[in-house]
Design a binder for these strands. Sequence first.
DNA 1: AATGACAGTCCCA
DNA 2: TGGGACTGTCATT
Length: 163
Amino acid sequence: MNAITVILPIQTADGEFLAHYTERGLIGLDFPRTASKPAKEPETIPTAVRAWHRITASALKSILAGKEPAKLPPLAPNGTAFQISVWAALRAISLGNTRSYGEIAEAIGRPKAVRAVGGACGANPIPVLVPCHRILAAGKRIGGFGGGMAWKRRLLAAEGVRV
DNA sequence: AATGACAGTCCCA
DNA sequence: TGGGACTGTCATT
């Protein structure tokens, strides 16, 4: 495996996100940092990555504006088999809808691994596009969020979700 | 190799 | 309202 990695910035009204790519697709998306570091751009950015990045930027801005993105880049997050299955289940949730941690656990065939689903959500390397923010605790309580509760509330508000 | 902590949930008192 | 069991992953010991 070639193991190229490209990190490209995305400017939004909420700050500068950083998108991480390998030759397989998007592997990570960082929330804006308080201490902003410069994005690392190699001399030669593969043509495919440029194309993916346009799609990523468009999709990110769409969701922040509360609109379902027309298209997503190839998503290739690294993780355990359990985490991959959780993230796949998250992607099936459309904008403006929510699930509970328990519902995700059931959907992947591990109904008792509710706690672990929370862990997998927290480990999600591609927040927003892989909608970990659409997972609420039982009874529509807000639950937690790795990127900070402010972001979870911000994203849910954009999608018109009330908790 | 074992333990503790965690973005949860159900059960039973 | 509160404590215990259950579960996958990671940091720490």
